[in-house]
Structures are given as C-alpha cells and as structure tokens.
C-alpha cells in the first residue's frame, strides 16, 4: 500500500503528520476490534491508548516492510490479553476467558446502529473467545487466515479451524 509506505517512512523520521494519518486510519478499527473481543468499553479505550503510544515508542525502529495494520492489531491483541490477565489476577489463555454477555441487549448492543448489527454482535459475544477472535480478524477486519494466524500467535491451520467453526456457529446463532 503506497500510503502505508509513506506513513512508515514518516514514522521512522518521527513525523507527527504521519502518526496522525495512521491514527486516523486505524484508531476506530483497533478500538472496535478490542471492544468486540472483550465487550468492555473502558478496557478497549485503555488498549487503544496503549497500542498507539507503543507505536510512537517503536516508530523509529519499525522495519521498512512492516505491515502497519497487522502490527497494530497484534499489539492491541496482546495488550488486551495482558490487561485481562491482570484484571483476572491469574494467567488464562484467550479461549479460557469468560464470554461477554450473551443474553439480552446490553449497552454495547445499543451502540450498534441496526437491529441486524445488534443480533450479529450478540451472536459474536456468544462464541468462544478464540473463535470470536478468528471471525473478527478475518471476516470483519479482512485479514487473510495467514495474517490472522500471525496476529493470534497460532498456526494457519488452527486459525482456519477456529474461523470455520466460528462462522458455522454464527450462522446458527444469527436468526
């Protein structure tokens, strides 16, 4: 992507305009991803902040071929797990994290603009966390299974399996 290349060069020089461009392009996407992953707005805000401050810290050392979008989602995903672990006072894998609310509309549901979107959100919340993550990365954010696997720290085969199961479950859940 041409713009990303220019942003990357700008970031490496410490150019604030390049940071602003990346921030505007990806802030809402990163925030939405974490919000849907965990279902907690305050947590998603903190993770979004951590992610972009981390980008600023690492800007000068980013490799020229860095995929900025994947880098941001990887950092956000890892920060989300770190913060959740700290909140739970013990380490757990993503799949062991408690599910988001699964019954009835929540304040988060009400943020969704349409009834269909609210139903999709409730169905996503009902998925096991690892399947939810795979669906969000591939089917919502548009990452390839290989990219999503790299972000989630699993093999592409595992990611594809989670994605397939997640999509199958979603089809049944969205009525």
């Amino acid at each position: 992507m041409v713009a990303e290349g220019a942003w990357l060069e700008g970031l490496q020089r410490g150019d604030p305009a390049a940071f602003d461009a990346v921030y505007e392009a990806y802030r809402a996407r990163v925030f939405s991803f974490v919000l849907r992953l965990g279902g907690e707005r305050a947590l998603a805000e903190d993770v979004m902040q951590d992610t972009f401050v981390r980008l600023a810290e690492r800007a000068a050392r980013l490799a020229p071929d860095t995929d900025l979008r994947a880098w941001l989602f990887t950092v956000a995903r890892n920060r989300f797990l770190d913060r959740r672990r700290r909140m739970l006072f013990r380490g757990r894998t993503l799949s062991a994290l408690p599910l988001a609310a699964t019954t009835g509309p929540t304040p988060f549901d009400r943020l969704e603009q349409s009834e269909l979107a609210a139903r999709v959100q409730r169905a996503l919340s009902a998925l096991p966390a690892d399947q939810r993550e795979a669906v969000l990365l591939c089917s919502v954010e548009g990452f390839t299974p290989a990219e999503a696997a790299s972000i989630a720290g699993v093999s592409p085969a595992t990611l594809r399996k989670r994605l397939s199961r997640g999509r199958q479950a979603l089809r049944k859940l969205i009525r």
Partner: peptide, 13 residues
C-alpha cells in the same frame, strides 16, 4: 453471513 458481519459498523472513542 458476510453481509450480516458487514452490517457491523465501527466504534470510536
């Protein structure tokens, strides 16, 4: 399913 997932908007702070 993709259409339904596409109905999800983005949220912002």
């Amino acid at each position: 399913l993709d259409e339904a997932l596409g109905a999800l908007g983005t949220h912002d702070v």
